[in-house]
Amino acid sequence: MEDELRTSLDRLAIKVGTSRAELVRIAVDLLLLRIASDRLHGRPDAIDAEVTAEIYRGEANREVLIARRARQRGRPL
């Protein structure tokens, strides 16, 4: 896990009175429930399609995302 994500999760955990591990567990539980629900409703590939779409959106904005990340980390491109 990247330091930036770890720090954000730690801040959120403190804010809501739990731990980073619990937040991750909840996220995984929600993901698994979503996958199960999609399968029960006859959409076994729904989450795959959404992830793929997000990847393509990310690729379309790759340079913007790289520049933003570099600025956030205070590094030149």
Rank of each mutant, 00 (worst) to 15 (best):
A46K: 14
A46C: 02
A46P: 04
I47F: 15
I47N: 15
D48A: 10
D48M: 08
D48K: 08
D48P: 02
D48G: 09
D48E: 13
A49S: 07
A49V: 10
A49E: 12
A49T: 11
A49H: 08
E50H: 02
E50I: 02
E50F: 00
E50N: 03
V51K: 00
V51C: 01
V51M: 02
V51W: 03
T52S: 14
T52A: 13
T52E: 14
A53K: 08
E54S: 15
E54T: 15
E54G: 12
I55M: 11
I55R: 14
I55D: 10
I55E: 11
I55Y: 10
I55H: 07
I55K: 10
Y56W: 14
Y56G: 07
Y56P: 06
Y56A: 15
R57D: 02
R57A: 04
G58C: 00
G58R: 02
G58P: 00
E59H: 08
E59V: 08
E59T: 04
E59A: 09
A60R: 10
A60I: 07
A60N: 05
A60S: 06
A60G: 04
N61P: 05
N61A: 12
N61F: 01
N61E: 12
N61C: 02
N61K: 13
R62M: 12
R62W: 11
R62I: 12
R62Y: 14
E63D: 14
V64H: 10
V64G: 07
V64A: 15
V64L: 15
V64M: 13
L65H: 08
L65F: 11
L65S: 05
L65D: 03
I66E: 13
I66T: 04
I66W: 01
A67H: 07
A67C: 03
A67R: 15
A67S: 10
R68M: 06
R68F: 06
R68W: 09
R69Q: 08
R69T: 06
A70G: 00
A70V: 01
A70F: 04
A70C: 06
R71P: 06
R71C: 06
R71L: 12
R71D: 15
Q72E: 12
Q72W: 01
Q72N: 09
Q72I: 00
R73V: 04
R73G: 00
R73C: 00
R73E: 12
R73K: 13
G74C: 11
G74Y: 07
G74D: 11
G74M: 09
G74H: 07
G74F: 09
R75V: 15
R75L: 11
R75G: 00
R75S: 03
R75C: 00
R75I: 09
R75N: 03
